[in-house]
Simulated scan of single mutants.
Amino acid sequence: MKYSLRIVGICVVLLALLGSCKQKAKTVGGVDRSTIFVVDESFKPIVDQELYIFGALYKDGHPKVIYAPENNAVNLLFSDSVRVLIIAREMNAEENKALASKNIKPIVNRFAIDAVTLIVNQASNDTTITLSEIKKMLNGNTKTDKDIVFDNPNSGLVRYLKELSGNKDLKQKNIYSLKSNKEVIKYVSEHPNAIGITGFSWLNDPEKDYADAVNKVKIVSVKDDISKNGSGQYFSPSQQTIALKQYPLTRNLYILNFTGKMGLGMEFAAFIAGDQGQRIILKSGLLPDEIPGREINIVSKIKQ
């Protein structure tokens, strides 16, 4: 009898330990990892707006948000620290294979289209550039004394520029990476000989701490002189030119949910893809994945 009780006691302790380990595996720093969102810091302005309204409408809609460069965000996923990513790409074949080995399948939703934007100082005479000139500039194949600056070297924006140029390094002597989009805008506002590359959302309705810098820069129009569908015209980024596929430097924004269950990640994905979330995107200056409809009430007056 004593032996049986001892066995039961041991089983209870083991079950408790297993339960503790299981719970620990689901949390990071005591926080449920499914409620931690890691967001590419390039999209902070628009995601902040979405989260603010989401939190106001939903009582429990307050995830813990980590802003990080894209590479760091993906590394957090594979280190089992987070389950929700907001970045400018889907998982590649190698990453999907690694996730499949763990029986993890993401639910992917595109919620907006951003414009990769070139900016110069207001004093600069540069107002236009072609895609081929951008590629040459990034590959160091053109004579220029201009400094080319962009955000963190681990960001999704830098990945985009590497793919655009076919250059895996971007280590030319006049190309510099800073720490953030804000720093890029501030640098260009103070240096007439600089070209900055940033996300469009940082230039529309800027925060007070860098609004003055935005007023001291201007956006460069871009012409697609490479693809067969190029119109031969220069276009500035806007919702219209993005929607009509006239502005050539665009990237999709995605929310990737790896939780595999209903919860905060699913709720936020539904919100950001829904009517209210898409209206916030529309107001921000980016292009929503789906243009919200407009209701028009027609009232007819019958003459007596």
Rank of each mutant, 00 (worst) to 15 (best):
E133C: 03
I134Y: 06
I134T: 07
K136E: 13
K136C: 01
K136S: 12
K136Y: 03
M137T: 09
M137A: 06
L138G: 09
L138W: 10
L138T: 09
N139T: 06
G140N: 09
N141A: 11
N141E: 15
T142K: 04
T142W: 00
K143V: 15
K143N: 11
T144P: 03
T144L: 04
D145Q: 12
D145F: 09
K146A: 11
K146V: 09
K146M: 13
I148T: 02
I148V: 14
I148E: 01
V149A: 08
F150A: 08
D151C: 12
N152L: 07
N152D: 15
P153R: 13
P153Q: 13
N154M: 09
G156T: 04
L157E: 10
L157P: 03
V158C: 04
V158R: 12
V158N: 12
R159V: 09
R159Q: 14
Y160E: 00
Y160W: 08
Y160S: 00
Y160L: 00
L161W: 00
L161F: 01
L161M: 15
L161N: 01
K162V: 05
K162N: 05
K162I: 05
K162E: 08
E163L: 13
L164K: 02
L164N: 01
L164D: 01
S165L: 04
G166T: 05
N167L: 02
N167H: 06
N167P: 06
K168E: 14
D169V: 06
D169E: 14
L170I: 05
L170Q: 05
Q172A: 08
Q172L: 08
N174Y: 07
I175C: 01
Y176I: 11
S177Y: 14
L178N: 11
L178Y: 10
S180L: 09
S180Q: 10
S180R: 12
N181T: 07
N181G: 10
K182G: 06
K182Y: 14
K182N: 11
K182D: 13
I185G: 01
I185E: 01
I185P: 00
I185T: 02
Y187W: 10
Y187Q: 07
Y187R: 11
V188C: 07
V188P: 07
V188N: 08
S189P: 08
S189Y: 08
H191Q: 15
H191P: 08
P192R: 12
P192F: 12
N193T: 14
N193Q: 14
A194F: 00
I195D: 02
